[in-house]
Design a protein around this nucleic acid. Structure first.
Lengths: 348, 348
DNA sequence: AAATATTATGTTATCGGTAACAAATTTTCT
DNA sequence: AGAAAATTTGTTACCGATAACATAATATTT
């Protein structure tokens, strides 16, 4: 690392003023061709590019968005990050990543870190919704003083920011209706942690759908199952071993595809054949859904499109005075083999 | 977005100089308690935190590392990013993400974007190795003038930077030896694209292992298979349908677990039972390996630990004059059911 | 050739924060 | 009380880049 060249170095070496260097960099036409060439040559020799810090300081914008999510290893968030990245890139912005882990609240440290970075916008996704609503709005308001804020959030969370909401009604309705059509009556939900407001919201929607369709909503069919494969394995074992086999559900809806993966493994281990003995529906439509055995029917919440909208709105909000509004993205059921629909199975 | 407060706003409102505000922020003990309280109160009221741009400009360091990789949706790179993130976080640094897609070279645009951001370091992972070696070293040298550079790269790539190399010898040797022990003689490799130097390197290592163990290295057993599931499906079909079934391999080693997923799906579709009719070994030891049916034996290259080392070395290089060296991380074979080892199968 | 218009280049204040140094205030000591 | 020491606070130049404005260097016109 010899020496980082600055605009002064370039100017001195080229025998011109810094203003001229800026003009050359900015491709300002008001520069004599001879000067332009000489300066450009020195620029190339040093691989010089104006410093972003200096530019940001001067212009008041960093051309950088923050994306805050629990973990990128969760494929749902991974897809959000990826989509946000490309949408930002399309607008010559880059992304600064923040992971909050299982933290259910926005920490003051994170808020001040975000402010410190003077981002052109922040996108929050997941896992902050269980925080106290007022605390959350206070934190968002603080941030809002410095930058536009967007969230990808459940539909009943109305926060003072740009809210891109997923369609949790259909996220529950679609699988239940599909299973109902296939003749299933006893449907279980293995979902997230009941202590998280985010998850229990999904669970509640599920119960509502059961009632709407006059299906049994036995509490034994509604089990706390975490968010990963191991939790799925354990939860389904716990649920089934607690029930007389005559009362077993014939179908299981899971919080996400990872839980479904665990459930399928455990069911096979117990000697059931899928989808004949048990129908399964996951959520998120992850890449591996087409490659499980049987392939997994799943709900797609279209996280990419939500992330895209969020980034677009953030960049717009940067210009105009910031706005606070909500928009809902619908859900889609992707039907594969795990309920037997494509195989022509039907519960009677 | 009312107004972003600056240090001047705080100083004015508190009736002190900016130096005093800095002292309060920095918890400098040389401030009278009364002053400290008054200033802190104004700071809190405005949710003020010093701007990173201004700090970076002043100090010459951004406390930010760049991570450059082809795609985060590929779980191998996802793990690298995640590990790099936490190691950076541990050192109060954050991460700026760059995705290059299938780009096999470092583009000049990327180089100048990295220089513009004046990162405290850059970590490159994957997909740049097929570029011309000289071009690559030129690009890295340019970058090296502005910041320390690290790469996670194959072992024979000696670049002028911090090279964290994965152990490709064992990455080929371990699966071949394992299969050999289980009695397999005809072993195929479905790997990446033969046009990528990175991939063909793996393929070559594989062939070497076969020869070392006196196993047949029929060119028909060495097939171009891309990097994803669809490619795996197609490749295995292409390979097997081109061979008389008496010449079929009894085991397949794949470039990565995604390809293995596709291969398994295709083989089942063809009516083979796994692992009896065909042993499979993947690479990367992805989270889903334990949940495929049968569960997938896989090579772990420990990308997390490579990323950790890379970040640590980058941060060290920032202090001392930058160094250029290589360190190799070994590979591990994680044995599951897909070769039948745990089930006691053995080819005779 | 002088006056004017045009184009090219330089000067300078500014963005927000920091730290060395200077100055002011308070405390301690004789 | 007054000098010396210690503590608290302020002043200022600088980090790298930009843009408005000023000036210098040409080109055009009369």
């Amino acid at each position: 690392m010899n020496r980082k060249a600055t605009i002064y170095d370039i100017a001195r070496e080229a025998g011109v003023s810094t203003a001229t260097v800026t003009r050359v960099v900015r491709k300002d036409p008001h520069v004599k061709e001879a000067t332009r060439l000489k300066v450009q040559q020195i620029i190339d020799a040093h691989a010089y590019t104006p410093s972003l810090s200096a530019q940001s300081l001067e212009s008041g914008r960093s051309r950088t968005l923050a994306v805050v999510l629990p973990v990128i290893s969760n494929l749902y968030f991974n897809r959000i990050l990826d989509a946000a990245y490309w949408e930002a890139e399309k607008n010559s912005c880059s992304i600064r990543l923040f992971q909050t882990m299982e933290n259910q609240v926005i920490s003051p440290v994170l808020v001040s870190e975000l402010i410190r970075c003077r981002m052109d916008g922040v996108l929050f996704a997941g896992s902050i919704w269980s925080a106290d609503r007022d605390d959350l709005n206070t934190a968002l308001a603080k941030l809002g003083r410095y930058m536009p804020v967007a969230t990808i959030c459940p539909p009943d969370v109305s926060l003072e920011c740009i809210c891109i909401q997923s369609d949790l009604v259909n996220c529950s309705r679609l699988p239940v209706r599909h299973l109902h059509t296939l003749g299933h009556r006893r449907i279980a939900f293995l979902g997230g942690s009941m202590h998280s407001k985010d998850t229990s919201r999904r669970g509640i929607g599920f119960l509502e759908q059961l009632r709407l369709m006059d299906l049994p909503d036995d509490p034994a069919y509604h089990v706390d199952a975490g968010y990963d494969m191991e939790s799925g394995e354990r939860a389904v074992l716990r649920m089934l071993s607690g029930l007389d086999s005559s009362r077993w559900p014939t179908a299981i809806v899971t919080f996400n595809d990872l839980v479904a993966l665990g459930v399928m493994k455990q069911l096979k281990k117990m000697g059931l054949s899928l989808p004949q003995d048990m129908a399964i529906i996951g959520c998120d439509n992850q890449f591996f859904c087409a490659y499980t055995d049987p392939s997994l029917t799943s709900v797609d919440l279209h996280p990419e499109e939500m992330a895209q909208s969020a980034v677009r709105e953030l960049l717009l909000a940067r210009e105009s005075s910031s706005r606070s509004f909500a928009m809902v993205r619908d859900a889609t059921l992707v039907i594969r083999e795990s309920c037997g629909a494509q195989l022509g199975f039907r519960k009677l």
